[in-house]
């Protein structure tokens, strides 16, 4: 495979698109296919005895949506969320949840063969929550494994 940095062409079958966003000072990505919508932050209703990263639930057009503080989930200091924060509504199988992030930065297209499996290191921020890594214009992209983030996912079990 020849390395080529031409990532700006239209996504084809070997291309995948990722939504990039910031959590604190850190940049992460999500497969765009799992993103349902992006909305402004509203104060969630806290749940009793919930883990620190589960901020509560909000009303999403009549359904009740769990809100996850992605920073707390990834081991960063918890977000003091306010109206400037953004909630990424994600879908994984039958599960839907909202992830609180600081800011959404854009959509990136990446060739699938440039995704590397995350190295098996333990400890540190976000360890065990990533599905892939990639390098784009000198930036390391960390792609989040939704299954480990969502309640009832592998990490919660």
């Amino acid at each position: 495979m020849a390395l080529n940095d031409d990532h700006h062409h239209q996504p084809g079958p070997d291309m995948a698109e990722f939504l990039s966003f910031c959590v604190g000072a850190e940049e992460f990505c999500l497969d765009v296919m799992s993103v349902r919508e992006i909305r402004g932050w509203t104060a969630p209703t806290p749940l009793p005895h919930a883990p620190a990263h589960l901020s509560g639930v909000v009303n999403l057009r009549g359904t009740i949506l769990p809100i996850i503080d992605l920073a707390a989930r990834l081991g960063l200091p918890a977000t003091r969320a306010d109206g400037r924060h953004v909630v990424i509504v994600v879908e994984q199988g039958a599960q839907t949840a909202g992830l609180v992030v600081d800011v959404v930065s854009g959509i990136l297209a990446l060739a699938r063969d440039r995704l590397e499996p995350p190295p098996a290191v333990s400890g540190g921020i976000a360890s065990g929550c990533l599905s892939a890594l990639s390098l784009l214009d000198g930036r390391m992209l960390r792609i989040i494994d939704l299954a480990t983030i969502l309640p009832g996912g592998r990490a919660a079990a």
Partner: peptide, 27 residues
């Protein structure tokens, strides 16, 4: 009555949730 979606474990003492007139969720 609205079920709480998203695969959350059942919470002791909470039967379900609802949405109040102001759009907020109440347990």
């Amino acid at each position: 009555i609205k079920p709480i979606r998203g695969g959350l474990p059942p919470m002791a003492g909470i039967a379900a949730a609802t949405i109040l007139g102001d759009g907020r969720v109440a347990l």
